[in-house]
């Protein structure tokens, strides 16, 4: 009798140990996007997942929780248990949004573990060759002539593109006005139609659209896919070769180590995948596979940097 009891107990122990060892992920992972379907990060997440399927059997479900510039999506993820089955897909602009909305940084930024950074997308200034003003020299001359009335366009006020514009004005010593449009493409249209002179965005924005050229790109060396685009350094604007927009994934703090390691691993595999690279690299995007250490460092840098500049330009107090 005692022996059979012991046997049963042993089985139970083994079984429960087996259950505990059930590897992450053993149920669908929800990837929460703050962009609507078809939006930039939404497309990126979906592409990531479709490439990732080559390396894992995990089931992913993409969700869109738009609103409040990303805050609603962040909140949705923070409300879920920290078990690694709800993942948020942020970009730099979400972190900026937290800062400009005066939300608690410890809750909204450091309440996450930044596990996987997918890429660094260089910021750039875009103009239209339909306009008379479409090189940097033109822009500077035109700015001086218009004496502060020159117009730069972008999708929002106070966002990272706006911040980039202000940094450029400061370094270049020119004055200009920022006009926020409802969306990136509309802001680009604004330059194409001559309403504004410069659009601040990323090289990928040009893809497929005619009539645009890159005036300056934030990169140490010229981008292979855009050999005609001068870098800020070449134009004499120093200290502006590291302005990038990143996209990645983050999970709620307290997520089990196993889950986070799994994501870092998966990212390494996807980052090396030729399919993934060919999706991004032609747009001048640098594919990276940064895990927690480097990603967290990047986020810290962005927060500090942005806070400094936002206070300086009066975006926040």
């Amino acid at each position: 009798m005692k022996k059979s009891l012991l046997f049963v107990a042993l089985c139970l122990v083994i079984l429960s140990a087996g259950a505990a060892l059930a590897a992450y992920p053993d149920k669908p992972i929800r990837v929460v996007n703050y962009a609507g379907p078809g939006g930039l990060m939404d497309v990126t997440s979906r592409k990531f997942i479709s490439v990732a399927q080559k390396y894992t059997n995990a089931v992913f479900v993409v969700e869109n929780k738009e609103g409040a510039g990303g805050l609603i999506g962040m909140q949705a993820v923070l409300e879920q248990p920290a078990d690694g089955y709800t993942v948020f897909a942020p970009t730099t602009s979400v972190v900026m949004k937290v800062l400009t909305s005066n939300k608690d940084i410890d809750e909204y930024v450091w309440g996450f573990e930044w596990v996987a950074m997918l890429m660094r997308d260089p910021e750039c200034l875009i103009g239209s060759d339909k306009n008379a003003v479409h090189t940097w020299a033109d822009v500077v001359k035109d700015a001086k002539e218009k004496n502060g009335a020159q117009l730069w366009t972008g999708p929002a006020a106070g966002g990272n593109d706006h911040l980039m514009a202000m940094k450029t004005w400061e370094v270049a010593g020119i004055k200009a006005k920022w006009i926020p449009y409802n969306s990136g493409p509309e802001a680009m249209l604004g330059v194409l139609s001559g309403q504004g002179v410069v659009y601040v965005g990323n090289p990928a924005d040009i893809g497929g659209r005619e009539g645009y050229n890159i005036i300056a790109v934030s990169s140490k060396e010229r981008l292979k896919s855009f050999p005609d685009a001068p870098t800020f350094g070449e134009l004499g604007l120093m200290g502006m070769d590291d302005e990038t927009m990143w996209r990645g994934f983050c999970v709620k703090k307290g997520t089990p180590e196993e889950a986070m390691v799994w994501w870092e691993d998966l990212l390494k595999k996807v980052a090396a995948d030729p399919d993934w690279r060919s999706f991004l690299e032609p747009d001048g995007i640098e594919v990276v596979d940064w895990g927690r250490d480097k990603f967290t460092e990047q986020v810290k840098k962005d927060v500090d940097d942005s806070l400094t500049y936002m206070k300086k330009y009066g975006i926040i107090k």
Binding site: G158, H162, K177, P180, G314, I315
Partner: peptide, 9 residues
């Protein structure tokens, strides 16, 4: 009560 941001016109 709304604050006028010095940022935009």
């Amino acid at each position: 009560g709304l604050e006028i941001s010095p940022l935009m016109d």
